[in-house]
Each structure stands twice: as structure tokens, then as C-alpha cells.
Design a protein around this nucleic acid. Structure first.
Lengths: 396, 396
DNA sequence: CAAAGTTAGTTTACTCAATTTACAAAGTCA
DNA sequence: TGACTTTGTAAATTGAGTAAACTAACTTTG
């Protein structure tokens, strides 16, 4: 991107109104219940202006009045609430051997859900199942003024701005024009985004990161994916490939990685790395993560030792993230989040002993509590955010 | 930072005008020479609006008319130029054993310069010399409508939003309220910022990165500092300590670093690391970077080998940066930029062989051409940017 | 070389969204 | 009960941009 390539928005009256209306709607959405007077106070707009904007929002089915609130010493305010049932969004988590799809209202509350097993390495079959999920959820959605407002899809790979899946190694997909295929079929706004990015959004909007503007979401599964939220927005990098921090090298003479680099973090700190180590130590090629955690639960020394060792590898990479991004919050998600119990303490300890004191001061490291819901919720939230940003609403 | 903590700007007429006026001024500053008609075309504003805004800018001494331009088939346009002599900024590079200070016009063109040697580890002495630089440049500045509009200072350390130097290891400073000290003395807007950050700004505004919105500036000297520019803005992280990528660990069992971590990149890839290696190999404790480069110039095998080896260590860290940030451009600056001739090719080669193909596609790796000017120019540019962003100008 | 066509910039009337001011409605509190 | 507060609406005002017409100045063309 070159600065000045696109002319900045010029200011005119419609922009002004759009800004203020969005501001009022935001307060109704996020500081509910509220009232006209309170909105005027918080925004600095006059009561008259707020009144007129609220009227329009009510006419647009995005807000409604609900009786009288508590008096603050004078006339009781009229309670204003967000009309979260004015439309519905679909969020999908496309994995390698299955997918989860949810229908949410405009608050991101899950209304319906579908989970389907499928070998998604077969592109055509995956798209067919994707379609059936979408169709089913569309049919199950209650009737509403705006209907289905959009679909967000999280994928284990890279996509461009047009929603083409450029490269998804674990799916074996390359150059699949997923967005345009689905848009043609369903005539709805579709967004395709990397799953770790989508997870970061999910955590920041519905998880323990609620309201945090600068966070890194580390999703630990077969590999390690990272989603970066800066100033409340996804950071996508110059060409949409940011956040491959799983491929930060932590060992200049380490194992070769399929990415071309050597000593990549995910070779040491992913779920796969842990399970491989366990298989070796236990001399049992069939051991799984769950199996290992069970052994740890029973207090087996070797299992506990493996987990502690793993925390150290995780920490090495986290320190790199801390020193690079100085985030407020790091969220550890993915399947390995299930091992929080054994990883958390040694990890915190390791990070404290190794990182610079200043960047660490305001830092929090937490394990995801949304679990695999982070992805679907984040995906739906992109669709919702796009709906509210769309000119349809703002310009009338 | 928590989202929604501060109320967003509400839209009113003055905001509208501020936006449009800034837009017009930007075109006059950066697409000079231009004309009212051309600005109207580019911005989408009407000719009438542009005319009125231009009049105000001329009244404010920020633009002036200069005869007639080339006709495009009708009446000749009136040429509009930016009044870069309407005010002057001071930019300072505070090093460990000296400082450089420049006086620039509002275009960032250097008008006067001072270089002073001093042991800046002595805080009081440093501040005194800083003061004499400022005083001399203020006195040498031509009289102008706005006078000295501000001072930007690049420091080898961390500062907070209030301009307190929190920690500057190479200076040995801790908690020095530099900004308030200087503001009291000179009654001018002062900005304190990390030198690598400032260098990134300098490169992006006046160097080979002109117009690039996403870049990482790697400043290689005694240590390695990094400045990150995202979407045209400095990225400072949650608490102002972003970009300590010199302390990304590239070796989990490497040498211990004074930062508390082990195997930090700067232990292997800084100028100091190179010189140390050279001293060891040549068994000569007095060899310097310049000495080594001289040997390389004469084709000495050992020197060439040391540089090639060094390029490899540099590359390891650059790949981490590429995979984390996916920048459009990486600029290598600092003293080691003098070794471009020997580092460039092996470095490019190494990076190509080790990085993911997609993030690399749009990437450019270049050596700074501004040299040590990047810091002073970047520092001055912050003062200039703040001047144009200040409400004084916009609201009238 | 004069008439026709183009481009640059200004003037005037108009629009729209927010503000200011006034006020009615509906409470609380002593 | 009366004074004071708070909530919300209504009417007049303000200010910035738009649209359209106009003047000015230059180029092109028959």
C-alpha cells in the first residue's frame, strides 16, 4: 500500500451524520440499557441531535424503547435497547476433517449450530457440505427485518482481499475462489479470513479479551497460528500474510521445516511436537494429547515432566512475541488450551524470568475459555461488523 | 488501552472543515505545484469549497500563489505552492557520546546543523549541551510567521507518552523527565521518541521508503533496535515498548543477554557481535568496523568470510520479522549499513532460501541511504506532523 | 482573426445536519 | 405543595458544502 494512493474521505454532511449515527448505535449496542439523555452526555452531542438519530435507528429496526428507567432526580428516562433480533449472521469454522457452523443474532449470541464431519481436503466435497450447513442455518433462522446479513468463514490458511483461498497447506487447497463461489450461490456478503485471525476477533469480542485493543491470539494445534489485533483491528500485513509467528525460528541450526526455514517455533511447541515427544518417551506410537493429559491427571511423573518441558518451549516463542509486539494480552487457544492446568504456572514463571521488565509490566497471558467457539464467533462477528459498516445503514 | 475508554470524535461542522482543510493542505504540500481546479478534481470537493479553503490557507501563511501554470486547453490555472518557510522545526539525535541537531523548514529540508561531542551518560551535562544546540538553532532560524514550531528528539531508549525517558540502557538514564524539563525552558512542543522509531519515520518520509505504509526499520549499531511503521503510523505497542526485536531469541540455549533472555538476535547480528568476532579471528583486540571493512575492500578472505557469516545471522532475524509482520519493506540502517556492499547479496540469498514464498512476494530489503540523517529528519518530522495536527491550525 | 469551445476560479442561492434556545412533561425532595 | 431536576421535543439559527450560473482567460478552428 502506498500512502495517498486512494483519496481520503472528504468531509460532508452525510459523513458527519454517518459518524454520529454509528456512535449512537454503538452506545445502544454496547452500553445497554441506556437512554437518549445518557447518550447525549457520553457523546457530547446535543439532546436534540440524539433524539433525531435515535428515531431513525428505531425506524430502521435497530433499536427499540422499553418502558421507563430509574430516575436520577427528575423525569424518568425512556430505556433504549438494541434490537439484536433484527438480523442474523452465520459463522463457520472450516477445519481439516469437519466444520462447525453457527447462526448468531446481531449480538453474536448463538441461536443454532451445526457440526459436520467431512474430509475437507476434497475441495468439491467440502464446498458441498459448506453449502448444506449454510442452507440449513438459513432455513432455521427466524424471520427478521434484515434476514441473514452475511457469512464469515475461518480457514486454516491464507486468503486475499477478494476472498480467494490462496494457500491452505493442511487442506491442500490452492487458489480456490471460495468467496465468489458462495456469493454467486447465496447472494450474501461472504468474508474469508485466517482462523487464527478470526479467533483473535472472537476472543476480543466475546471472550476474556473483551474490550482489549492490542492482543495476540496464539492458536496451538497441529501447527501454531497467530492472530494479531492492533488498536482493535486485525493486522493483516502488507499482503495478508502476517502472523506466521509459528514460523519464527528459535534455533538457527534446528530441524528443517516444510516452510523452508529451520528451527521453527511450531516444530517445538505445537500440539504435534508435544505428542511426538510423548510417543517417543512412552515408546507408544498411539498416545494422544488426551491420553497424555489423563496420565498427567493421575500424577504420572513422566507426563508432568513432558508438559513442563513443553511450557518452556512455548515460553521461548511467547517472549519473542512480547518483545516484538508488546501486546496487552496473549491468549493461548487451540486444542492445547486444554492443558492449561499444567502449562500455566511454569509458563508464567519462565516468561517472567526471561523477558524485559518493561514490556511485561502491562502484559497478561491467559488461556482461551471460548475454546473452539472463538473461531465461529469471530467469523460471525466479521459479518456483523461489515453489516454495521455497510453504507446501506449509514446513508439510508 | 481499552476500546471505548475515550469517546470517539463526534461529527460536527468544525470536524468536517478540519478534515477538508487538512486534505487540501496535504495536496498542496505533497503534490506541488498544483492549482485549485486540480485539487477539486482530486478530492471530489467542489471548486467553491476548495477556493474558500485555499484562501484561508493563504491567509494562514501556509500556501501562496505563484503566477500562472500550463494551460490544459483553457484558462491558465493559478499555481499554488506550499509555504515551507512559514516555520521551522528542530530535530535531534541524542547518541551516547554526542548529538546531532538540525533545523529544518516545514518540508523537512535541512537549513542548519550542529554536531557536538559529549559524554551523554552524564545526564546534566547532556541536557546542558542539548540546550545549547537548541538555543543556537533557534537563534539561527530565519524570522517566519510561526517561528520554531517544535522539537523532536530521538533517544536510544524508551519513553512514555509524557516524554519521560523511562530507561535508556546505553545512556544509563532512568526516569528523566526530559520533555517537561525542556518544555519549561523553551515553551515549545517537545516530543521524545525511540531512535529506531524515529529512524523509521525519517526513512518513510525522506528516504528510500517514501510513501511506504508498512515498513520495519532495523537499526544496527552497538545493539539492534527496530522501528515499526504500520499503515503509515508508528506502532508503539501497549506500553510503548514495541519493537524490541533485537531481543528476539534465535537460540533457546544461547548466550545470556543483559535483558534476561538468552540467545538474543543482537548478540549475534549487531555491529558489536561482528567486531567481536573479527577481533577473535584476527587475534587483534583493537580492530574496528571500519578496519574490517577496509580489509574486505582489499579482498582479504577472512574479512569477506566474516561478513558473509554475519549476513547469515542477520538473515535469521529478518526472516522472523518477515514472518511476524509481513512488511512491504525492511530498511537496514545504523552504522552497519556501511557494509551493504558485502552483506546485501548473501543476505538476500539467505532470506529467499529460508522464508515462506507468500510473505516474501511483495517484500523489499534495502539498506538505508539517509544514514545517520534518518534519525534527525525523523525527529523533526514528528514535530512538523504535530504542528499540522494541532488544533491551532485547524480550528482557527 | 473572430467565433466557438474549454478550463479556472468566483458568486449566489440552497441544502442539510448540528447547535442554541425555549419549553413541555414527568419526576424528586423538603 | 412548590421549587428544583431531569428527560425529551420543537423552532429558529448557524455554518460548511453543493449546485448552478457566471466571469475571466486561454486555445482551437474555420
Amino acid at each position: 500500500m502506498v500512502l495517498g494512493e486512494v483519496m481520503k474521505q472528504t468531509g460532508d454532511l452525510s459523513l458527519m451524520k454517518k459518524l454520529n449515527k454509528a456512535l449512537v448505535l454503538e452506545l445502544i449496542r454496547h452500553e445497554s440499557p441506556t437512554s437518549r439523555a445518557r447518550i447525549a452526555e457520553k457523546t457530547g452531542l446535543t439532546k436534540a441531535t440524539v433524539s433525531s438519530l435515535v428515531t431513525e435507528l428505531i425506524d430502521a429496526n435497530l433499536a427499540y424503547e422499553s418502558g421507563a428507567g430509574e430516575s436520577r432526580g427528575g423525569r424518568k428516562p425512556v430505556t433504549l435497547l438494541f434490537q439484536e433480533k433484527a438480523g442474523y449472521a452465520i459463522g463457520i469454522d472450516l477445519g481439516t476433517d469437519g466444520m462447525t457452523a453457527v447462526l448468531t443474532d446481531l449480538n453474536g449470541t448463538i441461536v443454532d449450530e451445526r457440526r459436520k464431519k467431512n474430509n475437507n481436503r476434497e475441495t468439491l466435497s467440502a464446498i458441498a457440505v459448506l453449502g448444506s450447513c449454510i442452507r440449513e442455518l438459513m432455513d432455521s433462522a427466524p424471520t427478521s427485518p434484515y434476514g441473514i446479513i452475511g457469512i464469515g468463514i475461518g480457514i486454516p490458511g491464507f486468503s486475499d482481499e477478494a476472498g480467494n483461498v490462496l494457500f491452505a497447506p493442511n487442506l491442500g487447497w490452492e487458489n480456490v475462489p471460495l468467496q465468489s463461489l458462495l456469493e454467486q450461490e447465496y447472494n450474501l456478503p461472504i468474508v474469508i479470513e485466517n482462523e487464527a485471525n478470526v479467533g483473535a476477533l472472537g476472543e476480543s469480542r466475546y471472550g476474556l479479551a473483551k474490550g482489549t485493543a492490542n492482543l495476540v491470539h496464539v492458536s496451538i494445534g497441529a501447527g501454531i497460528g497467530t492472530g494479531i489485533l492492533l488498536k482493535g483491528e486485525l493486522y493483516r500485513g502488507a499482503s495478508g500474510f502476517s502472523g506466521e509467528m509459528g514460523h519464527i525460528s528459535i534455533h538457527p541450526d534446528g530441524k528443517p521445516c516444510r516452510c523452508g526455514n529451520v528451527g521453527c517455533w511450531e516444530l517445538y511447541a505445537s500440539e504435534n511436537a508435544l505428542v511426538d515427544a510423548a510417543r517417543k518417551e512412552y515408546e507408544d506410537p498411539d498416545i494422544t494429547l488426551d491420553g497424555l493429559l489423563e496420565k498427567a491427571e493421575q500424577g504420572e511423573e513422566l507426563a508432568l515432566q513432558l508438559l513442563e518441558e513443553h511450557a518452556r518451549y512455548l515460553g521461548v516463542g511467547l517472549i519473542n512475541i512480547i518483545n516484538s509486539f508488546n501486546p496487552e494480552l496473549i491468549i493461548l487457544g487451540g486444542r492445547l488450551a486444554a492443558a492449561e492446568k499444567w502449562l500455566s504456572e511454569p509458563l508464567q514463571h519462565f516468561v517472567e524470568s526471561r523477558s524485559l521488565p518493561y514490556p511485561r509490566a502491562k502484559l497478561d497471558i491467559r488461556f482461551s475459555q471460548l475454546g473452539d467457539r472463538a473461531t465461529v464467533l469471530g467469523a460471525a462477528s466479521i459479518a456483523i461488523a461489515n453489516f454495521f459498516a455497510s453504507p446501506k445503514l449509514s446513508v439510508e
